[in-house]
Design a protein around this nucleic acid. Structure first.
Lengths: 148, 148
DNA sequence: ATGCATCCTCTAGTCGCTAGAGGATCAAGC
DNA sequence: GCTTGATCCTCTAGCGACTAGAGGATGCAT
């Protein structure tokens, strides 16, 4: 009755079709049954599972972390210490990134506020980029650079 | 006199050696002269140019944007409107990302604050991930998801 | 029966590097 | 002069999390 094609599942969880196949490929979602013509057929629980994954991704959890979280969700009798740890790590990561972006924001604002209209020779932006000494703040990237 | 090996340049600008080769490959830095044994030799201006690129990357500018900015820096007689536009766009992108991360932070804090020690069945984190309806805020990713 | 949507697999591209293989060359100490 | 270790060269592949597209097989509605 409630069998879903991959397209319906994608719609139900608001996730793109290729993404579902990708998740299956990397073992994040179980391989579903197939029809005679080799099409994937999902049952209702797949929607919840995919929504869980989507929500976790939106919160910035990495695939490995999600694997652990799913595993815990699948085994409700286990202690959830890992889930707390992961969430705390994620929170710390998010807060660190916010701090870094705040420094960037300040620096960029400083550049932009002196908006110039003349030639590039006098451009505040170009100038500031060429001379890091102008930076009031420390806006270095700690590990990886922001992919804004 | 002031010729630099790629290693010296990397040191001077605090950038890794392979990164310099990569920048050359994608045309961000000009191909330098070579010694008889095919080693790259740089002159002093290369340090400033590379530092410019590094600084722009730290501020989150993409390679294409940096190409434009470098082009402007190379032609000081041109109007710098593009530089201002790019900086403004970058500022807007950074601010948008901060807003999104703030929402994530709130949501994650909510999860973490109710730190549980029991089985996963009662875990706040697992529970919250499974039910987006619990989220007070809208922490959806607008375009791409945070690679925290 | 036609036509279009949806599905399948597979490969390659995105971004900005980073890591490693396999080999040549250089500089310093003995 | 010789050895050793650092540095250099090119080339290819990998990261994360998808996304895009080729080329072909179904499914469903008219």
């Amino acid at each position: 009755m409630s069998a879903l094609s991959i397209g319906k599942l994608a719609n139900a969880a608001d996730v793109k079709v290729p993404t579902i196949r990708f998740y299956e490929q990397i073992g994040l979602l179980p391989a579903p049954d197939r029809t005679q013509s080799d099409r994937r057929t999902y049952q209702q629980p797949a929607v919840r599972r995919l929504a869980f994954v989507k929500h976790a991704r939106q919160l910035g959890f990495g695939i490995d972390a999600i694997r652990t979280l799913l595993d815990l969700a699948d085994h409700p009798e286990r202690a959830c210490g890992d889930a707390n740890t992961l969430a705390e790590e994620q929170l710390a990561a998010v807060e660190a990134k916010i701090a870094q972006l705040d420094a960037l924001r300040i620096e960029l604002r400083r550049m932009v506020s002196a908006s110039c209209s003349g030639p590039a020779a006098e451009c505040r932006v170009i100038d500031a980029l060429g001379d890091h000494g102008q930076c009031a703040q420390d806006h270095r990237a700690p590990d990886r650079v922001v992919p804004v």
